[in-house]
Amino acid sequence: MERAISDKNILDKFVIDFTKIVEKYVKYIIVSGFVSISHGRTRGTEDIDMIIEKISLDKFKSLHFELEKNNFECMQSSKAEDIYDYLARKDSVRYIRKGEFLPEMEIKFVKDELDLLQLSTRQKLPLSGLDVWFSSIEMNIAFKEELLKSDKDLEDAKHLRIIYEDKISESFIKDIKKMIRKYRLKIK
């Protein structure tokens, strides 16, 4: 049982192992709750959110087979074609390690200009202690303050604002919020 405290926690190891495979096939970003959690935010999550570029079925099959070979499985189906259908319909799919209930990687394809911007402005965040691609801190703050807005999300944003005080671009956050209103909230 993993009760020893090491440098990396269970979520970290899961993300590291999963992204090591994904990045061979497709551009990805980790978004949402895990971004703030990897910067010290003390709240729970049982899944990690990932957005990937839209790739061809053939390329996705290769990715899926390698994930399976490395002991990951998709909760929705074992067939790459079925899983690809979910993604193409803009639904998410969830992968877990075989034989384990948690954690889960929830994956979606990019769905609009905003997601494309998230991917194109992705960053490695050394303060997270992880060598993985995240959406930018500004993106995370903007989504949490403008779209999600639950108590938990506003606290996540507050946490990130304090960690990255003086390092974030308020004008970029403002621009992203404008795009959120346009593409997600459909406000002109």
């Binding site: 990396k8 926690n9 269970i10 959690i37 010290g40 003390t42 384990e100 948690l102």
Partner: peptide, 13 residues
Amino acid sequence: LNAFLNAQIIKAR
């Protein structure tokens, strides 16, 4: 943080 996160996952599992 690691103790907290691991404990949650382990208990849930």
